[in-house]
Amino acid sequence: MDLLIAILTLVLLAVVILVISAPLRVARRAGGIVISGEQTAEDRAELQAAREAKYREIRDAELDYRTGKLSQEDYSLVDGTLRAEAVEILDRLAALGGDAPEDT
């Protein structure tokens, strides 16, 4: 029984070391993990999140208008503002090269 437990413990230890050290081994073989354009990708992700939030806001405003919570006048004003903000985000996203391939 003691031997079995010792073997189980060693197996567990070996698995843990393998799992944890995998990125280090890969990096050593490849000379370090480098993700090119990391900052750009993060900026793009942030803008994509902002864009989705803005689209949701536009939809919410429309739903508010259609359910009678916004007057025509207020809706036009809010919708125009939101669309202008959306354009600004889209422009900034376009400046970064647009959506990443997986998002299109």
Partner: peptide, 30 residues
């Protein structure tokens, strides 16, 4: 995992951050 994550993010060596993340998976398994 704490050491690897902090070292990874401080030095920009992603392999250590990744190793730190995998420490959490290992912790779950253990």
């Amino acid at each position: 995992g704490i050491g690897a994550s902090v070292y990874g993010v401080r030095t920009g060596r992603l392999e250590f951050s990744e190793s730190g993340r995998r420490s959490v998976y290992a912790l779950a398994g253990i």
